[in-house]
Amino acid sequence: MDILVSGLLLAGTYALVAMGLNLQYGVARIMNLANGELLVLGALASFWLFVSAEMSPLLTIFLVAPVAFAGNWLIYRFLLLPLVKRAKSQGHLEVDAILATFGMSFIMVGLMLSIHGEYFTYEFLTQPITILGSIVALNRFIAFLIAVAIGAGLYLWLNHTRPGAAMRAVAVSPEAAGLVGIDVARMSAFAFATGGAVTAVGGALISTFITLDASIGVLFTMKALIIVIMGGVGDIRGAILAAIILGIVETAVATLIDPGLTLTAAYLIFLLILLFRPQGLFGRRAT
């Protein structure tokens, strides 16, 4: 029961981060391998403002979101859009995007190391509470609630507003979306920026209950990617279920076997997905 509760709480933030990556890959067609570093950057902002200005991480996210949005918009507009324009094919763009975002991730790690090379340790809302008979720290629960709220808001926005519909149209087919008068480049920039903002907020939330450091981003990139692939690219329901599975399996492995094996467990899930359901949990097999 403890495992289920902690796993589920962890899954909330995982799902949020995966949602950010999903927007970037599903709509803007950029496989952003600097996603984890962005998360850590959000965490660093939260840590730094808490330690230096005693600012609550719950307030920091309102600062992190617009800054990350603007930063990601600029990155898309000036670094990634030129790649989209010069790409001869989707495969070509994929390779370029992978290399460019690797470059960005290294630069971000390098900068963060020079800002704060140690662990981001701080204590925020650590008092224990009881949920369904399990004792957990309040920060985990709060982070979960905020993640769920943001995720739900995003879901409603995508499914019930005009810009949301336009964004889904670009996700399905950029060509067709362009034909019906949607500004694909703008929508892609917007999706990339929103995805980045969501990821950075996720990072700020995670930092309240997991101790991060500047170079841990790649692990979160891996997890987000595994969730997106498991759930099926662009499939929000799938991503939520995948996040829950990953959250619970990781917590179970960490509690029952060894915390050092969580990545191995994630890989095992990844391998099973690649072998048996590469189209995602809910995806329909095309053959």
């Binding site: 670094l79 030129p82 790649l83 370029d96 290399l99 460019a100 690797f102 470059g103 960005m104 991730s105 290294f106 630069i107 971000m108 790690v109 390098g110 900068l111 190391l113 020079s114 090379g117 170079s215």
Partner: peptide, 20 residues
């Protein structure tokens, strides 16, 4: 020695944008 990661990142970008 503290800037090796940053340097790696810059070379990646150099490859993508200048020396494809």
């Amino acid at each position: 020695p503290n800037s090796t990661t940053l340097f790696l990142g810059l070379v990646f970008l150099l490859i993508v944008y200048v020396l494809p």
